[in-house]
Simulated scan of single mutants.
Amino acid sequence: MNRRLLLATVCLALLAVTSGCLGIGTGPVSEDQIDSDPAAQYQWADNETVHLTVQSNTEFRTVMETNKSTIELFRRDGFGGTNPLSVQAVRYRYPNGTIIPGSEIRDRGGEIRTTRDKTIVSLPGDAPPRGGSLAFTSESTPKRFTLPTYVDGTYEVVLPENRRIDFPVFGQVRPGGFTTSVDDQNRLHIVWDEPVTVDTVSVQFYLQRDLYVFGGVAALVVFVGLGGLFYYRRQIEELREERTEMGIDVETEVDDDDGPPPGMG
């Protein structure tokens, strides 16, 4: 009985930690994290409201125009709740082109902190209502990018080199109504020129060479299957020939006229 009580206590503690009930990991995001350098320069000058660049190291960079003083960043957990989105390399760009790092956002009256279900970014106190842009880097997943639409407007997602979405089994984009193009670095650009009205933008993609690997595996499976079928049929034919030679497999005629029972004719 004591063992069951101990197990229940441990499970409850783990549940509390993973759900954020104990407050572990909440509070201001560290200065080293928000002032770190992005993997590449942020795409400030862009025609879309939100510009997202998926990196090959399973991270992404984003620049979004701001039309409110506070932005809540999160991911949905699939159970009706949310988890905070981890952020690093945070930058804010004023309409005049001045760019400040995350620590200076705080110095100017803003904040970057994490609660148990979201990351809250408040812009500097001197930020204008419109015209500024917020940029940060966060985590993604291999071959699938999904992110809530924190800001209303048009979107653009840029995939890493040699990634595509065309093959239906491996590639999928939601919502529809997008256009695509490939730049001189062989990166696919997915653009929604009309404002996105759904809650989430999702892109499932694949490496181009994956199709060749899949095609090779599929051809091998078909070849092995056909070879096995041929071998199986050949074995049956050989067995039939042997039975015929031994006089076992002799067909007999079947009399369709049942006639009367024996002794009744």
Rank of each mutant, 00 (worst) to 15 (best):
D199K: 14
R61Y: 01
V222W: 10
D249I: 07
P95I: 11
G153L: 06
D166C: 00
F145Q: 01
M246P: 00
A219I: 11
D107K: 15
N186R: 12
G171V: 05
G110K: 02
V151S: 03
T62P: 02
T98H: 06
P262D: 13
P168V: 05
S19A: 10
D32R: 14
Q41T: 09
I99C: 01
P195Y: 11
R116G: 00
L52F: 02
V17P: 01
G263F: 14
V213D: 11
S122V: 14
R163A: 04
D126L: 08
P129H: 01
L188H: 06
V203M: 03
G132S: 07
L220I: 15
Y92K: 00
V250I: 07
N96A: 07
E253D: 10
N67V: 08
Y92E: 00
V10S: 14
W44Q: 02
G109H: 08
P128V: 03
V222H: 03
V191A: 12
N47E: 08
D256P: 06
N57Y: 09
R187N: 05
W44T: 03
G23D: 07
E245V: 14
L7R: 15
I236G: 10
G176F: 02
S69Q: 11
S56P: 02
S140V: 09
Q43C: 05
D152Q: 09
S138K: 09
G228T: 13
E242V: 15
N57T: 12
G263L: 11
K68C: 03
E139A: 12
E253V: 07
G225H: 07
L159D: 04
P129K: 03
V158C: 05
L52T: 08
L229P: 03
L239T: 05
V158A: 02
E156N: 06
I71M: 10
E65Y: 06
P84S: 05
T18G: 01
L12H: 14
G153F: 11
T114H: 03
H189A: 01
V217W: 03
G102A: 12
S133Y: 01
V173K: 01
N186L: 03
S36C: 08
D256A: 06
E161Q: 13
Y212F: 12
D257L: 06
N67R: 09
V221F: 04
E161A: 06
I190C: 07
P262H: 11
P28Q: 09
E139I: 14
V221Y: 06
D193V: 02
P262E: 15
P168R: 03
G227V: 14
G110C: 04
P128F: 02
G109E: 04
Q55A: 05
A39I: 07
Q208N: 09
L123D: 01
F60N: 04
A8N: 15
V191H: 09
P168N: 04
Q208Y: 08
Y155S: 03
V201C: 02
G80P: 08
D117L: 01
